[in-house]
Design a protein around this nucleic acid. Structure first.
Lengths: 225, 225
DNA sequence: CCAAAAGTGTTCCGTCTACACCCATGG
DNA sequence: CCATGGGTGTAGACGGAACACTTTTGG
């Protein structure tokens, strides 16, 4: 402690994780009942305080790892939230992060252990503090980014059908897409590769499985899908 | 102090202001020599610590007001920067804000008082700490937002010529635009109104002056300009 | 009279959109 | 055999990109 900034006050800084998954054809969010005061028992995002020897990104990854067991997850900073009374107990500034995970990779026993639930983003209950606003901004961020970044793969298993991909797309955009136009555009995206495998889970006829190939990403100058 | 979060540590939180202006046909940035240790004398963005009774946005507005005398400035949060050693003195998390101001509204005596300089964003010197990265992200934000938000008016006087508007556009995008195509698109944007006034500063022939009309914003479903 | 900036239309091409029917198969 | 989801093509509209010359006037 060299005391450069001693005349100024410090504040608590936390991170909150907005964890999106795709299941039941919907975009879903992982939330839980808050385990501490103030606000104990309210629906809430999961978060944690930032310690002196970690970055915000590290803190968010730490929280995410503890909740889901997952590392190397797609994650983006949504923004800092700082209303003076946003936390009813103390002055806490929180930085929201959104993460996209593949629900199938996620160990459901961890979910139960923490008492977490997947809820449809369309029918979110009121959340603790400003967490609803955080979610709203996170969805806005996804919508803006999906046109220029292949986000969707993070929400799907390694192999997926075009129908699944389309549903992810529709869930994020919040609107329906024409199947034929969608498939036409996918054909032009060389980082989406057809495999010879067929999925027969959801249809009698069976659907071709596709795969994301990162190596072909550069070759598509712009993916607007 | 109710002591809810006593077991966690607090950190200093600051804001840094990335102040863009448009002059000499370029996008310019207002920077100064750092007045305090550590880093005294290095080129730097201007910032300030967040006090317990203000939000980040309020802190950024306070800094901006003190530097420029301007209130009600267009301002957006760029993001939080939190590398543990980003500040050589102490652990400080900083939230960057970018602001767009009209250079003509700005009192140049204040600039001299603080020892600030306008520098072309294309030829920025190395800045203190991670400030170059903040600027880079801010420019990225402007480029993404300019397609969906009429940012440019914040950089121009109330009355402006189409050539000026085009130059702002080119400065933000970093590429040249065809004059005829540009003017065609402007004609479809009903929130840009022609006035009967003529500016003769820059040409012998004179150029029509235009004005931004907020009331017509809604009527244009999407401004893609 | 000429330099310097303002102003103006058309054509082409590629992209997005709207739209409806056949296919394969398990039960 | 039929219900269910998978898969396919075309035509018209629209928007963006390329492109060059005329106008005005102060000096």
């Amino acid at each position: 402690m060299t005391g450069y900034y001693g005349e100024h006050s410090k504040v608590w800084v936390s991170v909150d994780c907005i964890i999106f998954g795709f299941d039941h054809g919907k975009l879903e969010l992982l939330i839980g009942r808050r385990q501490m005061d103030p606000g104990r028992g309210e629906w809430s995002l999961y978060g944690g305080f930032v310690s002196p020897e970690e970055t915000l990104e590290e803190a968010a990854s730490r929280v995410l790892l503890s909740l889901t067991g997952l590392k190397k997850v797609y994650m983006r900073q949504v923004g800092a939230f700082s209303a003076v009374d946003r936390d009813p107990g103390e002055r806490v500034i929180s930085v929201a992060f959104c993460a996209l995970i593949n629900v199938k990779d996620y160990d459901d026993t961890l979910r139960k252990e923490y008492g977490l639930e997947w809820v449809d983003v369309q029918t979110l209950p009121p959340l603790y503090s400003d967490h609803n606003e955080m979610v709203k901004q996170a969805i806005g961020l996804l919508r803006r980014r999906i046109a220029t970044e292949p986000l969707y793969f993070n929400l799907l298993p390694d192999l997926f059908t075009l129908t699944q991909l389309q549903h992810v797309y529709e869930a994020i955009l919040g609107e329906e897409i024409d199947k034929r136009n969608f498939r036409k555009r996918v054909k032009t995206m060389h980082f989406i590769e057809q495999t010879s495998l067929v999925d027969k889970q959801t249809s009698k006829r069976g659907a071709q499985l596709y795969r994301f190939n990162k190596r072909n990403l550069g070759s598509s100058s712009s993916f607007k899908l």
